[in-house]
Design a protein around this nucleic acid. Structure first.
Length: 193
DNA sequence: TCTTAGATGTGA
DNA sequence: CACATCTAAGAT
């Protein structure tokens, strides 16, 4: 059972919140999502859609549920999911997967990440792609049916919101979502000056 | 526990 | 040239 396209046919904020507690899998490795961020096509200068024509082309060319993977700071791949809520584009955007709690394939993850203590194995957007072996080769992949994707959460979760991390534009928007009290997040809620 | 510098590729 | 980052190293 995987998350289907309908899941991603909602606005970015809803998708980002609902992904907390879901499983992200890629090959033999998987983790429970504990941190996400929403990026919106409208009113969000931090979203790539605001300033990048190539990202707008990506939005037009792909269905909701497509992987948007890009290289950041010249060395880290960041994984996003394309979401399309309709409403003429006002609810389009991306969800950045920022941290997962390792579930399966721990051995392989450690191998790919080097010597790293468990809570920090996937506690950041650049870390989890490295651990799960996600690269630019996965850009554009359909995440609804394949070797990489999401599974629904099994139980009720408590979600916390906070400021987004590492951005300068639209930094006041509380669009980061966290699994409450999880030790596997990148930065705890409220620790984001 | 905290702050800092440096590695590094790419879209615009 | 500004980045949706991370790590090692040094100061506190």
């Amino acid at each position: 059972m995987v998350l289907e396209r309908e899941f991603f046919q909602r606005d970015p904020l809803t998708c980002a919140r609902e992904l907390i507690g879901c499983e992200l899998f890629s090959g033999a490795c998987a983790g429970t999502i504990v941190e996400t961020e929403a990026y919106s096509a409208v009113g969000d200068e931090a979203c790539h859609l605001f300033s990048r024509p190539s990202t707008r082309a990506f939005l037009a060319a792909h269905d909701p549920g497509a992987a948007y993977v890009y290289l950041n700071y010249g060395m880290y791949w960041l994984l996003n999911v394309l979401v399309k809520g309709g409403r003429g584009g006002a609810d389009d955007g991306f969800v950045l997967i920022r941290a997962v709690q390792p579930l399966r394939g721990l051995e392989l993850m450690r191998q790919r990440r080097g010597r790293t203590a468990l809570p920090h194995l996937c506690s950041g957007p650049g870390k989890l792609t490295q651990a799960l072996g996600i690269t630019g080769a996965d850009h554009g992949t359909n995440l609804c049916g394949g070797t990489m994707g999401f599974r629904p959460r099994l139980e009720h979760v408590e979600v916390e919101t906070s400021l987004r991390i590492g951005i300068s534009k639209a930094a006041h928007l509380p669009w980061r979502y966290l699994l409450k009290d999880s030790p596997f997040v990148s930065v705890a809620a409220g620790n984001t000056k």
